[in-house]
């Protein structure tokens, strides 16, 4: 069992390292992002794919357990929405934060949108969608 203090320290160090790395790869740069998604420049794609490959090997060697995540009804529509929003705004949930850190003030609007979207997901799911575990933080 991890203590609260250890978790806090790990999240602070992890957040600093993640923000620094994602920013220095160039994910906060809309031009770089569009060039990745249109395959004009494979640098960031290789960084992401390479990271997944290293993680997969390390997790297999360290025997990190798999998550028993089921493929539920929200996965495909959610991922389509996310991909569309990412291509338009240039933000996955971490990117607008580092954009603000780099001085791009309009990214605050993206953050506001993400906050509303996250809140709306739980609200809509509770009222209308009624998807089970795995969706909208249920």
């Amino acid at each position: 069992m991890r203590t609260r203090g250890a978790l806090l320290a790990a999240n602070i160090v992890g957040g600093l390292a993640l923000g620094f790395t994602v920013s220095r790869i160039g994910f906060g740069d809309y031009g770089e992002l569009n060039r990745m998604f249109t395959f004009q420049d494979l640098r960031m794609f290789l960084a992401f794919a390479g990271a997944v490959a290293i993680i997969a090997v390390a997790f297999a060697l360290l025997r990190v357990r798999r998550n028993p995540g089921r493929i539920h009804a929200g996965v495909v529509p959610g991922a389509v929405l996310f991909g569309t929003g990412w291509a338009i705004s240039g933000g996955c949930p971490a990117i607008p934060i580092i954009q603000v850190g780099a001085g791009y003030l309009p990214a605050l609007v993206t953050i506001a949108g993400i906050a509303l979207g996250v809140w709306l997901c739980r609200w809509t799911n509770g009222r209308f969608l009624r998807l089970d575990r795995g969706s909208c933080g249920v």
Partner: peptide
């Protein structure tokens, strides 16, 4: 940015 942000927020949580 706002519309894209809403799609990102809603979509990521829907997809988990």
């Amino acid at each position: 940015l706002f519309a894209g942000g809403i799609m990102v927020g809603f979509g990521t949580r829907l997809a988990g």
